[in-house]
């Protein structure tokens, strides 16, 4: 009896282990279609949003190799660009000055990408005036330290991963740092403040936003789904299509080209993020789709009751004639 039980226990243990490994693998095995496999992430940085979409800070310049042409007209290499990205100066740990509860560390420099991934651009807005009262934040605000310091940073576009955003923010800061007029100290403080904001966001339990997890339409009430459908085929489609500039001739007559982008629309209609899901192979088409969405920002407000709405938009010219 005793032995039998022990065997049973052993079998049970082994079985449990095997199951755990099996299901673990199933869960974490790299998915074939990354777009579809999106477990709700713990950090939603989307909650802070700035109304003004435009930034004054110049972004990084893509280094282009200027091919020199020979012959009468002399083509010289490109003149040096003033705003090339320099490597970030290594920073030791920095603690947030007074009053701020969480301790914040600046990312180590080697983690910082040379430039942010193309489809996501966190933007830094150095203009103080419009800001404070317009910040759309769903999280309870904590007191911001030092009103004297311009609270100028906010994220316009976000990603799922906070670490990415932070990296971009810092990369961005670096570019803005290059501007002579820019005070590096302020920039640094801004960076810290941004991180702080992020941490606050993570602290807030997302559950309080409702059960909506963004993807599955099945979770809506029927009424909401109806409203969303009207929104999708009405104001949303109209806004985007009016801003889409593309010439079918540029598709080389190809009628099967399609680029797909995953767009996150916030409740107030602002675009939270744009992400390529599938590229068409035609750079001109890919870019035109991105710009159509950017030009439509902000979109009309979402139907009430939706914190945000994620949708894949496909762009493909129907072909010649």
């Amino acid at each position: 009896m005793e032995r039998e039980e022990r065997t049973l226990l052993l079998t049970f243990g082994v079985s449990l282990l095997c199951h755990a490994i099996f299901f673990g693998l199933m869960l974490f095995w790299p998915s074939q279609s990354p777009a579809r496999f999106k477990a709700p992430s713990a950090i939603h940085v989307d909650m802070v949003s700035l109304p003004a979409p435009i930034n004054d800070v110049q972004t990084a310049i893509e280094p282009e190799s200027a091919a020199t042409d020979p012959v009468p007209v002399e083509a010289a290499p490109q003149p040096p660009k003033p705003d090339e990205i320099k490597p970030l100066i290594p920073e030791p740990e920095i603690k947030i000055p007074e009053k701020t509860e969480p301790e914040v560390k600046i990312e180590e420099p080697e983690k910082i990408p040379d430039k942010p991934p193309k489809h996501i651009q966190a933007k830094v807005k150095p203009k103080p005036d419009k800001l404070p009262n317009k910040i759309v934040s769903l999280t309870p605000k904590k007191k911001t330290p030092k009103p004297k310091l311009k609270p100028k940073t906010a994220l316009k576009q976000k990603t799922q991963k906070s670490s990415n955003v932070i990296k971009q923010a810092i990369a961005k800061l670096e570019t803005s740092k290059k501007k002579a007029s820019y005070d590096p100290v302020k920039a640094k403080l801004d960076g810290l403040r941004k991180k702080l904001g992020k941490i606050k966001n993570t602290d807030t339990p997302k559950r309080s936003e409702g059960t909506y997890s963004g993807q599955s339409r099945g979770k809506f009430s029927l009424a909401l789904a109806g409203k969303l459908n009207i929104y999708k085929y009405g104001p949303l489609r109209d806004s985007i299509v009016q801003n889409w500039a593309f010439n079918p001739g540029l598709a080389g007559g190809g009628t099967d080209l399609e680029v797909q982008l995953l767009v996150k629309i916030m409740a107030n209609g602002k675009i939270g993020s744009i992400e390529y899901v599938k590229r068409s192979g035609n750079a001109m088409l890919d870019e035109s789709a991105y710009r159509a969405i950017k030009k439509s920002d902000p979109l009309p407000r979402l139907p009430k009751g939706l914190p945000y709405y994620e949708i894949v938009m496909g762009f493909g010219p129907s072909g010649l004639n």
Partner: peptide
């Protein structure tokens, strides 16, 4: 586990297709 997986996989996004650019010149 099963539920989670099936939920994640059935989580398809809404889709909207555009075929006719309103502006034909950039």
């Amino acid at each position: 586990f099963f539920l989670l997986i099936s939920a994640a996989q059935s989580a398809e996004y809404d889709y909207l297709k555009f075929t006719n650019p309103f502006i034909k010149k950039i």
